[in-house]
Computed example of a mutant assay.
Amino acid sequence: MTSNNDTLLIQKSKQGDVHSFELLISKYQVYAYNIAWRMLGNEEDAKDATQETLIKVFKGLDKFKENSEFSTWLYTITVNTCRDLLRKRKKSMAISVDDTEDKIPIQLVADDAAGPEAQLEQKEVAGQLLTALGKIPEFQKTAVLLRDVYGFSYEEIGAIENCSVGTVKSRISRGRHGLRTLILNERSKNLQEGGTI
């Protein structure tokens, strides 16, 4: 359920109160931008997507059902806006390494048999993981990011992606498996070439 404070701001925003809308959006704008940045891979596109998202939210506020979370509705619009931009510009799902590698959970690609030295490789593996994220299917990538980077529940991801919890779990499982395979293949290739892992 949307908080009481948000509900009041939403109601005032629906009546055309711009100040209330600004207060409402200020709570979620940075989070929406971060999602856009990780999906689009650069600051300029992320800003464009966030701006377009906020316009869509303002224009479509009357359609928002107040018995659900406002944040989930806003993030759904953010994800869909990013996908629209990617289709229009025919860009790949690139992700920038800067300020992201330390937020990627190492357990996504960790080898259960790895020793303590694996911790020293975390930064390198995170960089490889970011590259691999651009190579897995879009819906798997989005599900993995929403779950493992942003901490959304399966139910919340299902609401954002408009699919069942079972589908969410399947996408996450396949996405993690694909990432693990890509990372291990890259590490194996580096070893064969005499490089570092």
Rank of each mutant, 00 (worst) to 15 (best):
L61K: 04
E121A: 06
K123R: 13
V144P: 06
Q107F: 13
Q119F: 12
I183K: 00
Q15P: 04
E161Q: 11
A32Q: 14
P116R: 10
S3E: 05
A94V: 08
L61I: 06
R171C: 05
A118G: 01
S3P: 06
S68N: 07
F21G: 09
T76D: 12
W73Q: 05
K27G: 10
S170A: 09
E161M: 14
I77Q: 08
T181R: 14
T76N: 15
G16H: 04
H177W: 02
A113K: 08
T100H: 07
A36L: 11
K141T: 05
S170T: 14
E52G: 00
K56P: 04
Q128W: 13
L9M: 00
V30Y: 06
A32V: 13
L85V: 09
Q119I: 05
R187A: 01
L86M: 15
T7K: 15
A118S: 12
I157F: 08
I106V: 15
V149F: 08
T167Y: 06
L85W: 09
E138H: 10
D99E: 15
T181D: 12
R174V: 04
Q192I: 10
K123A: 08
M93S: 10
K135F: 09
L85G: 12
K189E: 13
A132W: 04
R176H: 09
R83D: 05
L9K: 01
Q140V: 03
L129W: 07
D48L: 14
L179E: 00
L182P: 00
R180V: 03
G115S: 11
R147F: 01
L40Q: 04
G134V: 01
T72E: 06
A126V: 08
F58E: 06
V149M: 03
G115I: 03
D62V: 07
D148I: 03
F70R: 00
D17T: 14
A132G: 14
M39I: 13
N5D: 09
L54H: 05
G151M: 02
E156C: 01
G166T: 01
